[in-house]
Design a protein around this nucleic acid. Structure first.
Length: 606
RNA sequence: GCGCCUGUAGCUCAGCUGGAUAGAGCAACGGACUUCUAAUCCGUAGGCCAGGGGUUCGAAUCCCUUCAGGCGCACCA
């Protein structure tokens, strides 16, 4: 992979005694303004080591490099008030970056750092019999994106949906169903009916607390394998899953395993035994806990007073099971930030058990979704259902297509891809940890920094490439490029040979082009943003932060649209046209890959 | 009370492993479509980077402190 930074640091290092190229590389930065060059080395820190003024250092370095004669990568170097400003040879840079992208194609930005490594990602994990709402979307979209990113970097990924398919809520549900429900109503309204029953239970239980007692009894029966309880439980799960799978299909999300909480019911006893043997369990107020006082944390509850298990018990058991089953190198949990302490606690328990892989466990928390200042809660019925959001977003996309491009062939498919894309994109736009206040206006806005904007830009690029194959040129650059920036170079080979055959060849053999013709500010800026992509993917992976890619895509789309607006691509001059097509092709490829990594489709026509 | 997180333009957010004049989008206002898709582009306006101390040649960024908001702190997950 060509990397301008490391080239430059290798060149500068010999001029600074006692400094490794790596250190230079870490110090190099991008100047705030293009007129200050492409890269800069602030010399202030070196000042103490070299016992010279930063201004002096910059000047000395500049002189030293100039004397050595220029390399093909660097055009010139300037010392400006303590900064060493480096100007790259633009032609060479553009050629290298674009050639690499065109050669790599859809694998541009990928790597094999995850080769022969396995990462388990636990995400989505909704609670059975509860509807899928905006809150669940975050876990799902973040987890899915991490799955894509890790796969792209060579990791073997295991996506696990740790369904909330066990617990006292099933006791409540069974009571509510038997008291107020009917088989027919559940068959007709599916999860909606289960939710209605659940909400009704909580309302009634406020007036009549004995209902809670009854629910507890039913859950105990379920645990003991009571046939009626068991079959109702199974039925509730089936109904919920049917609905979840529809949502996952629409979102384009997959899992490798649906091992939920109930899966671990018969696997916890040995773990409890192990905790006892390792002398970690301690009785406290009738319950069994792992004491974490020395670690500055509240104790981790393992068994309730009545001897039943808790979620920490289950999570510890599940982690051990996953380690033994998948031999993971990393195990990632995507859940709300409110569970942070819980994860910190049981990660510590794993460490205390003597497992050194405790350090491979990662909690990836995200902020809380609220609406109108109120937290979402199934119990009170205060939710925005994902179903509603998706259908409204898709509907809005349909209308826009009808208005802008009514002749589009596969309208419904594109509407789905963009509507869903808009929702996921906005979910992945800001940093995970930020709380979000749900707003219809924001989700349904398709202008500016949005999914549809990026998808539209991709389709725009595709459209140009398609037209290139048709072989229709537009005009000469002199007619279209802004005055004062009209180039001379292209005019000499102003061939009007716009036969379809030739242009089709150009589009496919795009790697053969003259980069010196891409001499405008817009073209160069676009190439620079393209060159950033591999770093952004790596950073998203290191920080477990998909929003880095989401925002990158906006930046790239913005840069492409600027270029598109300022310059005609399908110009009559063949060489210029070829060069610009290479740029368009590289952008299209990168946009499509980026969209894929955050879980969006990249339709070729919108 | 203790712990974790957040506070940047009217709104939503970047920038936070310290570097040159603090950036986007939305909303507002003004421009650009007989042209490769205007779901676009360009311009104008908008800021004691919550407040106060400190460290540093240099702080939105690091440290301390105050304030405001969110979350968590024993048998729910």
């Amino acid at each position: 992979m060509f990397n301008a930074k490391s080239e430059v640091s290798r060149l500068l290092a010999p001029g600074i005694p006692g400094i490794e190229p790596q250190q230079i590389l870490d110090m190099l930065e991008v100047p705030p303004n293009p007129e200050m060059g492409d890269l800069a080395l602030p010399c202030f820190k070196l000042s103490r080591i070299l016992k010279k003024s930063p201004v002096q250092i910059a000047e000395d370095l500049s002189a030293a490099v100039s004397k050595k004669g220029s390399t093909e990568d660097i055009d010139r170097i300037e010392a400006v008030s303590g900064y060493l400003n480096i100007f790259l040879n633009k032609n060479v840079y553009i050629k290298k970056v674009l050639s690499e992208i065109l050669k790599a194609g859809s694998s541009f930005g990928s790597s094999d750092i995850g080769r022969r490594k396995t990462v388990v990602i636990d995400y989505s994990s909704p609670n059975i019999a509860k509807p899928f709402h905006v809150g669940h979307l975050r876990s799902t979209s973040i987890g899915n994106s991490l799955y894509q990113i890790f796969s792209f970097m060579g990791y073997h990924c295991i996506g696990i949906n740790h369904l909330g398919d066990w617990g006292t809520q099933f006791g409540k549900l069974i009571v509510a169903y038997k008291k107020w429900g009917s088989e027919q109503a559940v068959r007709e309204n599916m999860i909606d009916e289960l939710v209605a029953l659940y909400v009704k239970f909580h309302k009634e239980a406020e007036k009549d607390p004995s209902l809670n007692e009854e629910a507890r009894k039913w859950f105990t029966r379920l645990e003991q394998g009571n046939e009626e309880a068991r079959s109702l439980w199974r039925w509730f799960i089936d109904i919920s899953m049917e609905e979840y799978k529809k949502v996952y299909e629409l979102l384009g999300v997959r899992f490798d395993a649906y091992t939920g909480e109930s899966f671990y019911n018969d696997k916890m006893d040995p773990v409890i035994e192990e905790l006892k043997e390792k002398n970690l369990l301690k009785e406290s107020k009738g319950a069994m806990v792992v004491d974490l006082e020395k670690e500055g944390m509240p104790p981790c509850l393992i068994l309730k007073t009545d001897g039943s298990t808790l979620y920490a018990t289950r999570d510890i058991t599940a982690a051990i099971y996953r380690k033994n089953t998948y031999h993971f190198d990393k195990c990632i949990y995507v859940t709300g930030v409110s569970q942070s302490l819980h994860f910190k606690q049981w990660f510590k328990v794993i460490e205390k058990m003597g497992y050194d892989w405790y350090k491979d466990l990662y909690h990836v928390p995200f902020g809380t979704v609220s609406i109108g200042g109120e937290k979402l809660a199934t119990r009170t019925g205060k939710v925005v259902l994902l179903d509603d959001i998706l259908s409204r977003a898709i509907q809005k996309t349909r209308e826009t297509i009808e208005e802008k491009n009514p002749d589009l062939e596969n309208k419904e498919e594109v509407a789905r891809q963009m509507g869903v894309g808009a929702v996921i994109f906005s979910d992945l736009f800001s940093s995970r940890i930020k709380d979000v206040s749900f707003s219809w206006d924001e989700v349904l806005n398709f202008d500016g920094e949005t999914g549809p904007y990026v998808q539209y830009t991709h389709a725009r690029a595709c459209s140009v490439l398609r037209r290139a194959e048709d072989g229709k040129t537009v005009r000469t650059s002199a007619e279209t490029d802004p005055a004062g920036r009209v180039r001379k170079a292209g005019d000499e080979n102003d061939e009007t040979d716009s036969s379809g055959e030739t242009m089709a060849k150009e589009a496919s053999a795009a790697a053969d082009f003259d980069s010196s013709l891409l001499s405008s500010k817009e073209e160069y800026q676009l190439v620079r943003v393209l060159a950033d992509f591999p770093d952004k993917v790596k950073q998203a992976l290191d920080d477990l932060e998909p929003s880095i890619l989401t925002r990158y895509l906006v930046e790239l789309a913005k840069e492409f649209n600027r270029f598109y607006h300022e310059h005609s691509i399908l110009v009559k001059e063949r060489d210029l046209r070829k060069a610009r097509l290479a740029l368009v092709q590289a952008t299209k490829t990168t946009l499509a890959t980026g969209l894929r990594l955050i879980g969006l489709h990249a339709p070729e026509k919108v």
